[in-house]
Write a protein that binds this DNA or RNA. Sequence first.
DNA 1: CGTTTAATTGAAAGCAGTCAAACTATGTGG
DNA 2: CCACATAGTTTGACTGCTTTCAATTAAACG
Lengths: 212, 212
Amino acid sequence: MTLRSFSSGDFIGREGRSVSTCAILTQGFAVRQKLTGLGDCQIVSLHGPGDALNFQNAFLGFPDYDIRSVKDCVASFFNASALKDLAAERPAVAISLLMGAFTEASIAREWMLNTGRRSARTRLAHFLCEYLDRISLRQHPADGKYELRLTQEQIGDATGMTAVHVNRMLKALQSEKLIKQLGRFLSVPNMAALMDAGEYNPRYLHLPQANS
Amino acid sequence: MTLRSFSSGDFIGREGRSVSTCAILTQGFAVRQKLTGLGDCQIVSLHGPGDALNFQNAFLGFPDYDIRSVKDCVASFFNASALKDLAAERPAVAISLLMGAFTEASIAREWMLNTGRRSARTRLAHFLCEYLDRISLRQHPADGKYELRLTQEQIGDATGMTAVHVNRMLKALQSEKLIKQLGRFLSVPNMAALMDAGEYNPRYLHLPQANS
DNA sequence: CGTTTAATTGAAAGCAGTCAAACTATGTGG
DNA sequence: CCACATAGTTTGACTGCTTTCAATTAAACG
């Protein structure tokens, strides 16, 4: 079990070759991404402290995505086969992993709906809602200002649009008073309105508290 | 353990309320889908005989998708808690479920890349490659003619485009000699060329035979 | 304080969507 | 076996959302 640090843009893991370790993010903010043949990037998931980054390494042949540090990250690495052994010995561990994997798949499905069938504006509002929910799991900012740790280009990579269009849609949401931007920070005067604009319902995150 | 039959368009399962059963598809062809607030449909996965349709019901609170029969389906239903108990008693079962869940998530990520960052033509070629791979797992047609069981509208719902544009792109692939259409059947003169056009590499399916 | 990175804005082009109509296949009942 | 109804495919014309390209401004960093 070793800790490693990564600065912005560093690869915490790479697609392709099989690796014998798994990792948990302990600090910072990271994403998984995939590239097209032309080099276009699609971000496929967001990860904060406590998130499993690549547990599939213990059970499938190879990672199908890159893992990239967005903001200074610290990740804890451990042996993949140790995880597999643990899952084989302790059913509760296996079931916990299973719930995590199903949840990941559920989030991925919502993202598919987002990029496939929603307008840029809706898509962006939806993305912002999820982003805010995920970073505020641990703590809500006292002043209501959330740090937007992703660049507009990265938001575009996550939502399937260009950075230029992200900028324009961000402005549109601002002029509709759905969000307020102050430098790298963002506040939401009326969360219900933003959720409405993004057709956002967090059920798909399958958070333990918000069941039903 | 009960068998039920479904004709085209029937719902095998519905999003929303918690259900106490899981199902395996034993015959036919089905999809999972989600709807936007406006009623636009996104197909999020394809399922053939032998596929688990909703094992997550045993581990998460509720299904986040509809399951819909595309062609006459038969599904085998069983108690979700029985599956959970089995996973808790037999680690090998849990690990097998885990591999299935990770694979689903991997496929979902590739679809995100597809709809988010690839052109309609590439996206369609990619989709056709995966479709052909999945239906020919069990048997390759002797004459090289695959039955295209999805309507153009459904292909659009899976790839995030309109039925009209699917039609046009299908014609484009035909004029490029990448596919040949004869009624509801489809043949591929040069699979390598179609795979190339779709930037298709089946590694993300994590099929047991094709490791490395 | 200079250099790099990110955000912003405008203008133009294009891919894909929308709307509407015609055509084809499939299936049903008489 | 034909007539009709329905579902799916095909085509054209037009619109428009996003992208692309390019240039400017602002912010972050050493």
